[in-house]
């Protein structure tokens, strides 16, 4: 198990490096410099800026400087928010996004797995079909459609919940964003759980367990749940990425001052260092979480560890 974990960790490093280098090169391949639209500056000032941001160095040198900074958690200065470093900006905005994302993820797993399991056990019934219709709809409707429609009904028309972040301070302002973020994941996880549970329930070892008179509850809990969760666990990586992506939209629509909103602002403002920094940060986060998922997978499936 230790060997397996170590191998996984080592395998993640090249991926991470690739992401960083790719993102860095993309930004630096940009036609024209980041300050091009500020032509009003005199030439010597521009040169000073370039020097301050090391834009006068060669590309490999800049890359090495960037990687060196990264190791110490330094993502460089922001081009737009001149008084802040990228790390400071991320540090300020991320906790809120993390809170939202973690809540959405927890909600998605609990609701999705329960709904999927119930549907699988009641396969073919009215309940099953209802769950599946809901989840198909949930998968098909994008976050940026769900969010405004929910706001329109629950905040504007019914006025049950606050529409924007700033219009309230209580926990109620979390409700709509979290639900919006979780909805497509609930739908996907429910579908996945149902399909995988039906598959597992049809396997021979489940038949054996039933033949031992263990009762439906024990059969599902002891024998079926673990293997049925493996595809769901594999989906956690993409789910995390999807929630990060969704948070960009949700924060934009609800006006939540999280990292997603920062990212969009930075993208629209062409704040290269900030965009680059956030992409690198997100990538590292996703690679790290995928790593955790991989290790968990090994912990559940004994056969994986020995390969």
């Amino acid at each position: 198990m230790l060997r397996y974990t170590l191998l996984r960790v080592l395998g993640a490093i090249p991926t991470l490096l690739l992401v960083i280098v790719l993102a860095f090169l993309m930004v630096h391949a940009a036609p024209g410099g980041p300050f091009d639209d500020e032509r009003v500056l005199p030439a010597d000032v521009e040169a000073n800026i370039a020097r301050a941001y090391h834009l006068d160095e060669s590309l490999p040198k800049q890359l090495l400087r960037y990687l060196g900074g990264l190791v110490q958690g330094d993502l460089g200065p922001s081009y737009r928010y001149r008084d802040y470093t990228v790390s400071e900006l991320i540090g300020a905005a991320f906790p809120l996004s993390l809170k939202l994302g973690a809540m959405a993820m927890a909600l998605a797993i609990v609701v999705g797995v329960s709904a999927g399991t119930v549907a699988a056990l009641q396969q073919g019934t009215y309940l099953d079909r209802t769950v599946m219709a809901f989840s198909m709809t949930g998968i098909s409707i994008p976050v940026f459609v769900v969010a405004p429609v929910l706001v329109l009904f629950f905040a504007v028309k019914l006025q049950w919940l606050p529409a924007g972040w700033s219009s309230s301070t209580g926990a109620s302002r979390m409700v709509l964003p979290v639900i919006t973020l979780a909805l497509p994941q609930i739908a996907y996880i429910a579908r996945l759980t149902r399909a995988s549970m039906i598959d597992v329930l049809g396997r021979d070892f489940v038949r054996t367990a039933r033949a031992q008179g263990l009762g439906t509850l024990t059969v599902v809990r002891l024998h079926a749940l673990k293997p049925a969760m493996l595809p769901v666990l594999s989906y956690m990586g993409p789910a995390i990425a999807a929630i990060l992506t969704g948070s960009v939209v949700v924060e934009e629509i609800f006006g939540i001052p999280g990292l997603g909103q920062f990212f969009i602002r930075a993208a629209l403002n062409r704040d290269y260092t900030l965009v680059l920094g956030i992409v690198v940060f997100y990538a590292a986060l996703i690679v790290l979480l995928n790593l955790i998922v991989d290790v968990l997978y090994g912990a559940i499936d004994p056969r994986v560890r020995y390969r």
């Binding site: 993640a12 991926t15 993102a23 993309m26 990586g237 990425a241 992506t245 996703i286 690679v287």
Partner: peptide, 8 residues
């Protein structure tokens, strides 16, 4: 697969 594509 491990890359956050949408951000790229």
């Amino acid at each position: 697969y491990a890359l956050p594509f949408i951000f790229f």
